[in-house]
Design a protein around this nucleic acid. Sequence first.
DNA 1: GGCGAGGATCAGCGCGCTGCTCATGGCTCA
DNA 2: TGAGCCATGAGCAGCGCGCTGATCCTCGCC
Lengths: 234, 234
Amino acid sequence: MPQTAKILIVEDDAHIRRLLHATMQRAGYDVVEAAAARQALSLLDIERPDVVLLDLGLPDRDGLELIEPIRLRSAATLIVVTARDESAEKVAALDLGADDYVTKPFDTEELLARIRTALRHQRAIAAGELVTVVEAGDVHIDMDRRRVTRDGSEVHLTPKEYGVLVELAKRPDRVLSHAQLLRTVWGPAHVERVEYLRIVVRGLRQKLEKDPARPRLIVNELAVGYRLLLREAG
Amino acid sequence: MPQTAKILIVEDDAHIRRLLHATMQRAGYDVVEAAAARQALSLLDIERPDVVLLDLGLPDRDGLELIEPIRLRSAATLIVVTARDESAEKVAALDLGADDYVTKPFDTEELLARIRTALRHQRAIAAGELVTVVEAGDVHIDMDRRRVTRDGSEVHLTPKEYGVLVELAKRPDRVLSHAQLLRTVWGPAHVERVEYLRIVVRGLRQKLEKDPARPRLIVNELAVGYRLLLREAG
DNA sequence: GGCGAGGATCAGCGCGCTGCTCATGGCTCA
DNA sequence: TGAGCCATGAGCAGCGCGCTGATCCTCGCC
């Protein structure tokens, strides 16, 4: 990542586009803008932005359909801007791979704060400051060595099991949606196959939980997803 | 935002206008006033107030029609002044983008308190803080981790309960109309089903309130909507 | 070529969340 | 003080959702 971060604005309304452009420039970012999908994708390759601001625009789902190609093509943080404040759309956007979600009319300062957070996160990853060892109860996860131990003795995990566990361990205590886990471990084509995920979670629980029937490590959030609990709290 | 906040008063009745002007000045705010719509909009650009006090006035809907242009043109907090028994008008104002309302004859102290909370909120955002944690009494809401605790111990919420609570927490101390909550949590097809909302609110109260029969956290605004109170005031 | 492990499917089951209705109670206003 | 609206409370039925068990298939290893 260069000194000054680069932001790609994807927005069809020229007025808002100029407004965002000016705001971002004033905040010290390099700015590139695109008014349409094709342009956005090619700029993604050429300019390699650190953050993409994607306006979903109004009535169609065109904007949503842009999320996946962007995600496949770039590691940039993808922030979605939309006028519709509905949880269903938010869930859809995050499931397709968006990193954050802001609703219009948005507060400029809030948007800038979210961009700062995203960039801070990127820098932490780039600097290798990422936690690679996670302790959850008596389970020890070493993502560097690809080793998982329980009470000191190694636990053998299948590739899928390990993949899911690592995703959970990278963001401990947070809920990851079914789709998020499925997309990163199985790939975008399988986001709907919740059954696969459940089977793998079952395997993990049998290998890692004291009482697999009463999970305290990998817990479910109804209709949302799974979460890895660090401290075994009641 | 400058040291002393600036307030724009939009009010056609000269008598009330002077009264409000004096009250605000005595409270230490800079005051600008407008008697008509056009004047209000141009002053908005020139003076860039932090708060707009908009009197919806009497019989016509001119006042309501001012809300949207103000909202588009400015990030100011928009507080509407309405007549007592016009709950439909309050709902309309909120849905159009007003931040809050007070009813005539209004309590000066209440009005000032509303303005103070609005300014506090603005300052937090301007400082670049991304608010993801809200404290309301002994209830702790962490929107980042999707976790709610009461007196330190975790409270399990259902998806709908969590959705409603988050919407309220994102705009603490403000009224959200039934329709606003229903649209964001249930989706636009269910804006009429106030019953659903009520049942979820009941669940939240039973889990979060000390005395669910006398709510101090999630309080009702008659015929309008609900409000999440931060400080448990009488 | 046989065997075992992992992954993909499918059917069955039970919990509890959600949706919905009826009954009760409180607040406003005439 | 009574009428009417609006909010609250309780109970119930359906089913969405998560979990389990079992089977088939594929691939790698011996």
